[in-house]
Design a protein around this nucleic acid. Structure first.
Lengths: 264, 264
DNA sequence: CATGTCCATCTAGAAATTATACGAATAAAA
DNA sequence: TTTTATTCGTATAATTTCTAGATGGACATG
């Protein structure tokens, strides 16, 4: 029996179960019951199915502690990062304020986003009034949006600007909600979005000036063994990279070694 | 009929449906079928149930475009931020590299996390060897972990340090996986974690020096109308705030106006 | 006008889930 | 020691949810 053979609902439950075992090292039927609102019988069945999965290292039941204990060499069914781990580890306490630092959440206008999405889908150009931080509000312009992107902080629209004859990243929130949003079919094909279709491979290393011991900590923290950490993104997003990774701050612990570009 | 009356699986589907309508402005049965692997009949039933929910603004079916169209004043069933929006908007394209900038994902040792989780649950102290960036590896110390926290980048353990006689935030990845992890019952009650139990209310304003027009953009972007943006967290997490919000970088567009503290 | 693609609906049957009851092992309380 | 509570497991029948497969309607395309 494999995870993919299951229905979506049960698969979700088993993945949750797997994450409990991975990060808490233990799991109970109650965890499933609280999280998914299923019956004890169903939770017991889920455990049965989980144990029946193709597993190198199934958990064992500890009658003393009355829980399932993950094997010491437990291997996760579905990979999960620290974000998922944190969700699992704090799912019990519903305190306010939360135990997570609030993020600077950017807003967006529902209708603007939907109109952009539609223009992308149908391959149309759309008329907007845009306010940039540097040059202020414009008098309106035609753009041909191609896709949504994210720099980890907020969502951007990648679009061909006819005004500037190039592809740019726009922040939907800076589009005037009272723009005309007039649409037009794209008459002649757009130029290729070269920066989007270029892979940027960024090689990072522990910041110069760190002691060898500190460098070792940095390597372990970011999960690389050798000299460099390899990160891959698109050239169109590279502009946001340094800020997102905090390379431009004084306390930075990584720095760029080199960057390669190659077409995708 | 209310959303909460439904089973978990169907509720998930309707929330997804609601988000499609919110951010794409449209939805099809196919969206549900692709996402959850259900049959067309079930997807049709889900639509029926969705339309039967207590709704101020139900979507309408457009036979020309063959999709459901969200009402122009559509109100979301479940609130969702830009993160969920982005997931909805890009769920169609499975390209590599992704359209999101990669985040600096910190690693963590499975076993260490599970042991800490256990110590928290059972209220024990635990012996670890910790390497700090500034003072290097120590010879081992007893800490009493109380909870996991997150600064948005990585996960921390908040723990009382007997060595320093205060509560501190530790990075699990810097705990030596070969520590003894010996456990002891806490003999005398720990002191109160004052910083954790203090609410920090941070008031932000557009950075001094911005023009009135720029300030207006910043206000809209972060979603506040008046003079200040109010953000609430715990004093124990305040240390991470400026970095997370980028207040310490040159391009910062917000600055602190004042900070109030009050016990929780 | 045929074709394809959405939508909707119907039915029977399969699958998932619940409700309920019962038994065993363990720890803590009476 | 006995009782109680909690956790696990199992089994059954009833119920709900979902699927498979067929049918039909509305609309666009060529």
């Amino acid at each position: 029996m494999k995870l993919d053979d299951l229905k979506h609902a049960q698969r979700e439950r088993l993945i949750f179960l797997d994450r409990c075992l991975t990060w808490r090292g233990m799991a109970n039927r109650k965890d499933l019951i609280d999280r998914f609102g299923i019956s004890t019988a169903q939770a017991a069945l889920d455990f049965r199915v989980y144990l029946g999965l193709e597993h190198s290292t199934p958990p064992t039941y500890d009658p003393v502690r009355k829980t399932y204990i993950a094997a010491s060499e437990h291997e996760s069914l579905a990979p999960s990062g620290l974000t998922e781990a944190f969700a699992i580890l704090t799912s019990c306490d519903e305190s306010t304020p939360s135990s997570a630092l609030p993020r600077p959440e950017r807003k967006a206008d529902r209708r603007t986003i939907a109109l952009l999405h539609q223009a992308i889908r149908l391959g149309k150009t759309i008329h907007i009034r845009y306010t940039s931080m540097s040059s202020g509000a414009d008098e309106g312009q035609w753009i041909a949006p191609t896709r949504f992107t994210s720099d980890g902080e907020s969502v951007h629209v990648r679009a061909h600007s006819f005004k500037h004859s190039e592809y740019r990243n726009y922040l939907p929130i800076r589009i005037d909600p009272d723009s005309s949003f007039e649409e037009k079919i794209i008459d002649k094909p757009l130029p290729e979005d070269v920066d989007w279709n270029t892979r940027a491979i960024i090689w990072l290393r522990p910041k110069t000036g760190l002691s060898e011991e500190q460098a070792k900590v940095v390597r372990r923290e970011f999960g690389f063994e050798g000299e460099w950490l390899r990160v891959e993104t698109r050239k169109a997003l590279e502009f946001f990279f340094d800020r997102r990774w905090g390379l431009d701050t004084v306390g930075a612990r990584l720095e760029r070694a080199k960057t390669n570009y190659e077409p995708i």
